[in-house]
Nucleic acid binder design. Structure first.
Lengths: 188, 188
DNA sequence: GGAACGTGGATGATGTGTCAACTATTCCCG
DNA sequence: CGGGAATAGTTGACACATCATCCACGTTCC
């Protein structure tokens, strides 16, 4: 229904309306800068990337601190090859370690190392503080709710129906987050 | 003020509040999927990337269809080396062409080629339609306004004061957009 | 004129993401 | 049991972003 260019029967493209156009440009701009800033801040403060952080969060969120590769892919919404490459790099830096799965000869686990644990414990507080400073300290309660609702709507649209089919990705669960839920880095 | 990990006098990290946490996770998730989807859609439909598209938009927005490299960097909020590499790749594919600047021997122009023009004319309508379908068709007018206001606030925070200083990037102007303002690809 | 410094831009190394094979195992069905 | 199909994961090639470095040119000031 979308994704066709120049539908021959209806050659007049419906551009965005002015207010939509303004909102879109503001969003695109903001989102680009925010991503850039968060990444930079994270690697400067903690010597790990946002991607590393996302993986580590998933690991600390699991009792036993080990997760199957494919489950990692599903919860992060990443492709399996991305996971594979990324875990290889993280392993080289000592943040995680691979282990074979006995119950399924094909599978393997990604396991958190001590070094990985201290890396995320060092990174998390500063990251949370940054998100607060750059986003939530600026927004009213109503805006926070609006942000969530808008995001949920768009996300849902992206992961249901035609869109999801086109993507053919692992089905969703639960992505990156700021706070490792109830685990924390309190004593350190 | 931020960016310090474990401020010694105040060791208790202030995590996000529950509703903020929910909003943040929804936003991060949505933003990741939306970026992925837009990129994929663009390259499938038009054989150019979002980055190519952004560059081409800047070029079509200029009378004469030529822009200095550094101006490109400023308006896209990209680093100059990124522009340089990217333009090199685009040149190899025939989308743009470099030209020396006579008035300043150091400088060079990036010039739109015919092939580049037809590429963006082919890509723009489908992209706009996708953005409508994935975002604006889902939102109320109030939500569109909220999206803009939130984005503007956060963006402003990112580009003023300490944040901007840390970044030390080219100062801003005007980024990627869906519609090449009044230029269009109507007749084609 | 020319040294010092800033600016416009290119380049190479490295880390990262994507796509398309490919391997190895397990599952399923006869 | 045997043989395909599905599943879990890896690998290599390529596109891309970032960083540090480099070079050519311009500006300034003596």
């Amino acid at each position: 229904m979308m994704c066709q260019l120049f539908p021959y029967a209806e050659p007049v493209t419906r551009w965005l309306e002015p207010e939509q156009q303004r909102a879109w440009r503001a969003y695109v701009r903001m989102q680009g800068e925010l991503n850039a800033h968060l990444s930079r801040q994270m690697s400067v403060d903690s010597d790990i990337s946002m991607a590393d952080f996302a993986v580590l969060v998933q690991l600390t969120d699991t009792r036993d601190e080990r997760v199957r590769v494919l489950e990692l892919a599903r919860s992060l919404h990443w492709e399996k090859s991305r996971i594979s490459h990324h875990v290889a790099r993280m392993e080289k830096r000592g943040l995680v370690r691979r282990e074979n799965c006995r119950s399924d000869g094909r599978g393997s686990f990604v396991v958190l190392t001590d070094q990985g644990r201290s890396a995320i414990e060092a990174a998390a507080p500063a990251h949370a503080e940054t998100v607060r400073a750059l986003v939530f300290d600026l927004l009213t309660d109503a805006e926070v709710v609006a942000l969530r609702e808008i995001s949920e709507k768009v996300f849902e649209r992206l992961t249901t129906g035609e869109c999801a089919a086109v993507v053919a990705r692992c089905d969703a669960d639960d992505p990156m987050e700021v706070v490792p839920e109830e685990s924390g880095c309190p004593e350190a």
